[in-house]
Amino acid sequence: MTRRPPYFRKACNALLGLLSLISIVLAIGCMAWVLCTVCARGFSVLSADFLTSPCKPYGEEGAGIGNALVGTLLITGGAALLAVPPAMAAGIYMAEYGNGSRWAAFLRSAANIMMGLPSILIGLFVYVIIVVPAGHFSGLAGTVALAVIMFPIIMRTTEDMLNMVPPALRESALALGMTRMRATLCILTRAAKNGLATGVLLALARVSGETAPLLFTAMFAYSSPSGYFREPTANLPVLINEYTMNSPFESMHEIGWGAALVISIIILTVNIITRILFREQSR
């Protein structure tokens, strides 16, 4: 073995420290760069009018994002309604009944694989099972696509959170003569409620920015989202895509940046608030 002088080893070590520092600065710096760009370019168009008036095709004055904002809220809210109850029940099954069984391990792997599937494929899937039979694009199809994406995320967080509840609590509830169902619904979910809420909110924040699954399901429209069940429905992510990627006009790009700022604010606020609340309660 060759002996290396200590200053060489120290230099290598310092180099590693420097590299680590650079990489974290790079990561956080790039995030700041992206967010600052969005703020700088989006802030100038932001106004009450912009938030309420509907989006319009190129050339018309006074375009805003009102209908897309409502559409996004409808689509993600619907997805939450559709996905949360069954996903929580599935998580309860995994945590309470599936302990150590192979069937549960299989379900867990399936959910993990589902979480990693590209979201555009889920859009394709929902297109085939809903849009084709119904014969039209609709906001509802977009809702289903987002619900499919949320399902495994919430299922896995529910399971993890229930597993973190101390077993003594579960056993004492059962020892008092409660049925398994009562013990789960009244005691365990209540003990884990912060974690469950965090899981749901983070999943919601994540899917509300998803664009790819909405391209062939909710699509895009200039109309108000009253045709949620039957017609293409306006929504923010696809609006951003339409106004920036598919449009050469500067005025539309501005609206795109404004929409990007709004959706970033919504998502980051939900994210940060959830994390702060959860951190304080888990102490």
Binding site: G209, I240, A260, L268
Partner: peptide, 12 residues
């Protein structure tokens, strides 16, 4: 938080 930023914004 890098993971929270929607992909369409990275695209823009």
């Amino acid at each position: 938080l890098l993971a929270a930023i929607p992909s369409v914004i990275y695209g823009m």
